[in-house]
């Protein structure tokens, strides 16, 4: 790092945001290959205890922003700070729930959850005890000794959720975590997520292509345009009361008003993305 930039636009004394992406851009290629700028300089903040959902058409750079916040991807420009500290390397304060299966197939559900504590040096017996409690919280007590391939897609996501939350991360990063699940299971998982989140209100950055899911879960819905040079084109506060039931909140008239307003923005982008893909 030759140039150190101090970006502190928040009012003095205010708590720094849990996640701050300042003019972050993401590019691939370089060298012999032409540079593909996936995400144009983008600024996004997630406050403490805030649940932010990023919505946009599939394949538009939403996940790359998330990976930048996790430290899995180095932005081409801009700065990532976590609770005011510039991020270097992997983000140790964040838990990451992947879209794909990220469980270790050679470990049972219990071992997969317990390992999250064991890597931090906790004794195996204590880690297993806590892992059991977490499996109970996600409703999988009876499946502790199953291997991932013996669980359904929804059950694997529950194990993944327990594996991430048992470490008590300050920030939760979720990359279309319920994408591969069927509609009913998604709603059940959404409600489970909100119930767990309500106990300690971590900062959440939740990526999805499903606008309804985003409105039902989040405090704020951010709309991303379609790549290349994806950027944020809309930012909507969701003032639906909490606690919410993900299935029932969809019947709320306010939900429909919000949905209509946001969809009118999103529709053009989805059409554009669809046109580009075909």
């Amino acid at each position: 790092m030759v140039v150190l930039r101090v970006i502190e636009r928040d009012a003095p004394g205010a708590k720094p945001p849990a996640v701050a992406l300042d003019a972050v851009s993401i590019a691939y290629g370089g060298g012999a290959q032409p540079v593909y700028e996936a995400v144009a300089p983008t600024t996004l903040r997630v406050a403490e205890s805030e649940f932010v959902a990023i919505v946009g058409p599939t394949g538009c750079g939403k996940s790359t922003l998330l990976n930048a916040a996790a430290g899995l991807l180095k932005p081409a420009s801009g700065a990532v700070s976590i609770f005011g500290e510039p991020l270097s390397g992997l983000n140790g304060k964040a838990g990451y729930l992947f879209q794909q299966d990220a469980l270790m197939p050679w470990k049972t559900a219990l071992e997969n959850v317990a390992i999250a504590l064991e890597v931090g040096g906790m004794a195996s017996a204590e880690a297993r005890k806590q892992a059991k409690a977490w499996l109970a919280r996600v409703g999988l007590s009876a499946f502790a000794d199953r291997y991932p391939h013996q669980l359904s897609g929804g059950q694997r996501k529950r194990v993944g959720l327990a594996q991430v939350l048992i470490r008590d991360p300050k920030i939760l990063l979720m990359d279309e975590p319920f994408g591969p699940l069927d509609a009913q299971t998604r709603q059940i998982m959404g409600t489970l997520l909100l119930d767990l989140w309500a106990t300690d209100r971590k900062a959440v950055l939740f990526v999805t292509h499903d606008l309804e899911e985003a409105i039902a879960l989040a405090d704020r819905v951010v709309i991303m345009s379609c790549g290349p040079k994806a950027r944020i084109i809309g930012d909507h506060a969701i003032d639906l009361p909490r606690p919410r039931d993900v299935a029932e909140v969809r019947l709320d008239p306010r939900f429909h008003t919000l949905h209509r307003a946001i969809w009118s923005e999103l529709r053009d982008e989805v059409t554009k993305a669809y046109g580009a893909a075909t």
Binding site: F98, M104, I115
Partner: peptide
């Protein structure tokens, strides 16, 4: 090794020795 499993293990805080043993 699945890159997702590997990324997940790294984010869990595994060091090289633990990655070797568990992944």
């Amino acid at each position: 090794v699945s890159s997702v499993v590997l990324a997940n293990a790294r984010l869990m805080g595994m060091n090289e020795r633990q990655l070797f043993r568990h992944v």
